[in-house]
Amino acid sequence: MMVLIVNNDHDFRNIVRIILKPYNYDVVEAVSYNDGFWRAVEFKPQIVLVDNIITSKSGIDLCKDIQLIPGMEATEFLVFTDFDNELEKVVDSRIIGVIKKPYILFEMRKILPFPSIQQQAG
């Protein structure tokens, strides 16, 4: 499954990549709104993990714009935030969850499909 991570912090993207790697997710990274949009056009990820604030536009705006790309109608989104009540802004998007930093590992495991290691070996 292809996952796009959009965040301007290299260390944050690296941590998320490390979390996803054992579960065989293919990860593409982007550092800005524009970079994320064009990588979505190129790679057509099934899931986009995006920070709520990236460059001059919000991550939520990026999610809405990516949904308009042909072939991206079924893409799901997960937003990382520093703020409470971020879900109030995303009611009209296919956002499957909002994770308040710094609880990314625990919350990602609840929201994303993580097959067990035994399932992968079989």
Rank of each mutant, 00 (worst) to 15 (best):
E88V: 07
V16F: 09
S58H: 05
R13A: 06
D92E: 14
F83N: 15
V50Q: 02
R17D: 13
D61M: 07
K57S: 00
V3T: 12
V98T: 12
G36W: 11
Y25Q: 08
V41C: 09
L20Y: 10
E88I: 05
D11G: 06
R109S: 07
Q119V: 07
I19N: 10
W38G: 01
E42G: 06
I95C: 13
Y23V: 08
S56D: 14
E86C: 14
R109Q: 15
P102A: 07
P70G: 03
F83A: 12
Y25M: 04
C63N: 00
E42D: 06
L78N: 04
Y33Q: 03
L68P: 02
E42W: 01
N7F: 01
Y103D: 14
I5V: 15
V3C: 11
P70I: 01
R94L: 03
Y25L: 04
D61K: 09
V90Y: 02
A121K: 15
V41E: 03
M1G: 08
D51M: 01
T55H: 09
Y23S: 12
V79F: 05
S56E: 13
P22S: 06
L68Y: 04
R94G: 00
F106L: 13
I54K: 05
S93I: 03
I47M: 07
P70Y: 02
K110I: 02
T75F: 00
I5R: 10
T55S: 15
K64S: 08
L87C: 07
I95L: 02
F106T: 15
V98W: 03
